Simulated scan of single mutants.
Amino acid sequence: MNKFWMTVIGVIAGIIALSNLGPIIGLAFSGVIIYIGVHYYLRSTSTAAKILWAIVGTVGALSAVSNVPAIIGVLAIAVLWYIYKNWNEETIAAPVKNDPFTNFEKQWDKLTK
């Protein structure tokens, strides 16, 4: 892929990522709420505490479901990362076979000189 198309795709992915920044932050916040709810649910011993932390986890899960557009933003960020990593990538030549007989012959020639 040449740099022109990488630039075009990068600009489009950047616009999508910026436009979905709010839902991405909301999804991250929902994930923290779910984590807290599950963490304290597993540590609690009383039934009332388990019910309370289950409700907190459920609220976090419902909040995460409402932030589903953030998945598109996360995919756009992944595309930007891919473009960043492959910006200066050069073509790789065919790998050189590591033939033990060829290496032996090269070393034998060095020894006999």
Rank of each mutant, 00 (worst) to 15 (best):
A54P: 11
I33G: 04
V11F: 02
A70Y: 12
P69I: 05
S30L: 05
M6V: 02
A76E: 08
I83C: 07
T47G: 06
G37Y: 03
I92P: 00
G73S: 09
G14R: 00
N88C: 03
P100Q: 01
L62P: 02
I55D: 00
L21G: 03
K97Q: 09
T7G: 00
A54S: 15
T102S: 09
F101M: 13
I55E: 03
I77N: 10
V32E: 11
L18G: 00
G10S: 01
Y84H: 15
Y35T: 07
I55L: 06
F29W: 15
I83T: 14
E89K: 14
G31A: 13
I92E: 09
K85G: 02
K50W: 06
T102E: 11
N67G: 03
A48H: 10
N67A: 12
I92D: 02
R43H: 14
A28V: 15
W81A: 15
A61P: 00
S19W: 05
P69N: 04
L75F: 14
N86Q: 14
S30W: 07
I36A: 10
K50P: 03
P95K: 09
K50E: 09
P95A: 05
V79H: 02
I51K: 14
K106W: 12
V8Y: 00
I77E: 02
T45Y: 11
G73I: 01
I34D: 02
Y82S: 11
S66N: 07
G26K: 13
V74S: 05
I16N: 00
I12H: 01
L18F: 13
G22C: 08
H39Y: 13
A48M: 13
I9K: 01
A64T: 04
S19R: 01
P23R: 09
T7N: 01
L62S: 07
I9P: 00
I72Y: 10
G14L: 02
V32G: 05
G60Q: 04
P95L: 08
K97L: 11
V38R: 05
Y40N: 15
K106Q: 14
A49L: 15
I83S: 12
V65D: 03
A48W: 07
I24S: 09
K50N: 07
L80Q: 15
G37E: 04
P95T: 06
A76K: 03
V79R: 02
K106G: 10
S63G: 10
